[in-house]
Design a protein around this nucleic acid. Sequence first.
DNA 1: GGACACTTAAACATAC
DNA 2: GGTATGTTTAAGTGTC
Length: 374
Amino acid sequence: MENSSHTLPPPSLCSNTFEVSLPFSSSPQRTYCRVSLPPSPISFPSSPSSLSPATAESSHSSSPLSHCIAPQCLEGQNIQCLTPANISDQDDLTCLNWLHQRGNLLPLQPLPRTPTLPQLEPSQPNQPLVSSKPPYSFSSLIFMAIEDSPQKRLPVKDIYDWIVSNFPFYRTASGGWRNSVRHNLSLSKSFRRIQRDKSQSVGKGSLWCVCPEYRTALLEVLRKTHRYHSTNSNLLNKSALLEADEFGLPAVCDSLEISDPLSHTLLLSSPSPQALSIDNPSFSDNPTCSLTPDHEELVTMESVDYQHEEVCEEIEKDPLSDSGYIELHYYESQQYLLLPTDTELDLETVEILQLDAEAQEAAGSLLDLAGGGY
DNA sequence: GGACACTTAAACATAC
DNA sequence: GGTATGTTTAAGTGTC
């Protein structure tokens, strides 16, 4: 964990735009959300590499997570971000270990147990705390895996690996799901088998790709799943707030009481890497300038009334309550966040913008695909 | 209640 | 022969 930090300049020189990295793509993706910064200086890790966009471009094979912040993070003086180097394989899309690797973010104690959060065996200290079944169908998983590959085609084994890499649930699941993957590949018209080039053939089996004519339908299914779960993705927020309260941490609760519905929108975007390159002067001048309607998707962040009883009740209901996290990349330029020229910082409020992991994932895939096309 | 989508399990064939 | 891959069938579940 990076301990050293540097301090941002006063808010007048800071951006209120955070970069949200989408967790799984070999291609760079950027998501932006508007976050009002607190008046006090915020500290960031001093290592430029831990904040640079390059980390967001790391392959999912290392870890889909790179930097994460939680509500408490914004209020504290030290923001400790996770990097691929300090996140183990277990820190994955549906894993909450990251919460406990964040120093002051959450106490180094187990999360409150709920009926939906399976207990870990003591003999598996490095396993994810929780791992619920992803909401995506096998078709969607296969689709995402293939689309996330550079060549847009994968052997079945790599599809397995992608799923396991991104959804810890399948690490411990019995092998039947692999059968289901193969079953889907064979049965679904959405996927097409391609004979490997004999001259370069390594390994068994064929390559699988997505049929272009079914790509739109797959995308729509993924989009619907994403939307459904993104609207139910606030529950971890509430869980974190409860924890903060329980352990006497300074939860940033006010942020969840904002009544302005516009302030509860998260702007997701996947502009081209070039447009968002930190070296791109136009972007440096205005981080939002490259966002186009084609690349935007608004995800409503519901207003939250976080009374204890209600929260607990909802957490137990939510099958994905174990999978939410914020993954925000602070966009750094010359050690300072970039400031949009028209920024009006609300110094009283910190808006907590949070997506659950799967929602981010779906969003990342969707947006990446929507931006890419064939 | 029926159609449909999806999951899971199983059997079998084929290729490496 | 063992394993991975690919195909097919069947049954069960959930949703619309």
